[in-house]
Nucleic acid binder design. Structure first.
Lengths: 156, 156
DNA sequence: CAAAATTATTAGGCTCACCTAATTATATTA
DNA sequence: TAATATAATTAGGTGAGCCTAATAATTTTG
């Protein structure tokens, strides 16, 4: 398995390829907040492990294997971000936190989180009501009046 | 701020003190899955930074500062664990994942997660219904029949 | 196309958290 | 209390991922 750091590089390469059409040393360095020599070193590791196509002084592309890992990590990232945003975390902070958390979750937790996001997205009305209650709670520190009444038709 | 690893040690010490009444080198080593010399080294660091009281060949205790950090980390851990368990992740795995995730969240996300858990725990009936829908969805891969009908009194 | 500018790589070092093996201190028991 | 067992520490080393400074390749421009 790719280490946490290698996963970060794969994800950055994946995003760079999508956004810019290429992934060069300096771009990745800047995206990840590290210096160019670190990137060169990691490119070499990623190549050795079969995740990227890398020839010195040329840009990199993902192998099939690399793309799979990157896509997985990226999906996990997106779902963690969505979840944090449901919790009213700002998009910017949610994105940052997702970067770190994405490497820490087990398959089991990832699966359940995926299901959870899927669930939320597939039952908009019901979910929106419940989440609105949470938003109210988050903002006011107490349950919304309608909720406290156990009635749920007049809270809008 | 304490590094991720130092936080792990503080948390382990905190738990050991609570569970066993003391925190010795070998106990912490075994709890954290590392060898004794690593613990000695970290104890020294934690002492230098004012988190623990440590004299060679004696057990350790937490300073006020250390206890605060440990308690915070521990609370975050508990809330992440609770959240994962809401998502039907097994308690064991939820605990493991919480260990890793607990160091990755920003203050903002921690605050919101705390609110979320508080919210869930404070509105049992309403929440239970929604979570039951998720449990059904998680188990069957589709929304429960009552939910699909947009009626919510006959789904039990 | 040569000089300059840019981009990438190599060389050599650093820190962190870990390890094993050897040593020293403490605790137990004959 | 001396011998032994246990527990903790020191000494010395490793690998991962980062750094700066120096060098080499590529690209751009006069």
């Amino acid at each position: 398995m790719a280490t946490q750091s290698l996963e970060d590089y794969l994800e950055a390469i994946y995003n760079s390829l999508n956004r810019r059409g290429h992934a060069k040393t300096n771009e990745i360095a800047s995206d990840l907040g590290v210096k160019a020599p670190s990137v060169t070193e990691m490119f070499d590791k990623l190549r050795k492990e079969g995740f990227i196509n890398y020839k010195k002084y040329e840009g990199v592309t993902l192998t099939e294997r690399g793309r799979e890992v990157a896509k997985d990590v990226s999906e996990v990232h997106e779902n963690i971000k969505k979840f944090l945003e449901l919790l009213q975390v700002s998009p910017k902070q949610a994105d940052k936190d997702a970067c770190k958390v994405e490497h820490s979750l087990s398959e089991e937790s990832i699966d359940q989180l995926n299901k959870f996001i899927d669930f939320v997205e597939r039952c908009p009305e019901e979910e929106a009501r419940w989440l609105k209650h949470f938003d109210y709670f988050s903002a006011h520190g107490e349950l919304p009046p309608a909720h406290r009444d156990k009635r749920d038709e007049g809270e809008e």
